[in-house]
Structure formats: structure tokens, C-alpha cells
């Protein structure tokens, strides 16, 4: 089953309470046929566990990598993902849409 916001934000809090570094990624803008709506969350713990989604699985790997840097330096960042073939070696969205994702550290 899909994780709900209850599970995602609840899990993020549980990770923080357990003393883990945690980042929260949120879809802040979409263009075209984006797989997940604005406001969708992905919570990431420093040990690599994550819950939720910001796309249909296309860019989660990249977001998790950026989230690790965010947990280290504490700086929020805005990531943008577009169509796969334009960005060759980067993650892309096969659906043809574009999304912007805000990543912030919790704590």
C-alpha cells in the first residue's frame, strides 16, 4: 500500500526521536504530467531508509543522494527534474513532466 502523509511525517519524527539525521523532500512545483502532486513528501534517514515518494520512483535515487548532503550541511536546496533524455546521465522523468523538489533537514 502507498504510504500516507501520516506514515511519512510520523516516521520522520520517529527517526529524529531515535537520534537519526533526517531530511524531508517535498514536491513544490510540477509542470506537465508529473507523477506525484504538489505537496507529496519523501522522508529520508541518514542510514538510507526512506518513506514516501516525489515521483513514480524515477528520481528518488537522486533525491536521496541530495538529502544525504542536506543532512550533512543543513542547507535546504531546490532540485529540478525534467525529461530523461535531455539530462542524459541524470535521473529524469519518463512521463515527460517536470518537477521541483524542496529538500530540508529536520532538527
Amino acid at each position: 500500500m502507498l504510504a500516507s502523509d501520516d506514515d511519512i511525517l510520523g516516521q520522520a519524527e520517529a527517526w529524529v526521536t531515535a537520534g537519526k539525521g533526517v531530511a524531508l523532500a517535498t514536491v513544490i512545483e510540477t509542470w506537465g504530467s508529473a507523477p506525484r502532486p504538489v505537496g507529496s513528501h519523501l522522508a529520508i534517514a541518514e542510514d538510507g531508509h526512506f518513506l514516501g515518494s516525489v515521483s513514480g520512483g524515477c528520481v528518488e535515487g537522486d533525491v536521496v543522494t541530495e538529502a544525504m548532503d542536506c543532512i550533512s550541511d543543513g542547507k535546504p536546496r531546490v532540485l529540478e527534474f525534467g525529461v530523461a533524455d535531455e539530462t542524459a546521465w541524470r535521473a529524469g522523468l519518463s512521463c515527460g513532466g517536470r518537477i521541483r523538489v524542496y529538500v530540508e533537514r529536520i532538527g
Binding site: L9, A12, E13, V16, L24, Y102, E104, R105, I106, G107
Partner: peptide, 23 residues
Amino acid sequence: MRRELLAELNVARRERRAVVLVS
């Protein structure tokens, strides 16, 4: 996000209260 804000978001959700986080 400050930890307290995340905790407040989760409490509001459990209590069925509408809240908006402005960032």
C-alpha cells in the same frame, strides 16, 4: 524544519485540525 514544527504537524493531523506550514 525545526523538530518542534514537525511534532506539531503530526499532533494536528492526529487531532484532525487544519494547519499550514509556511516555508
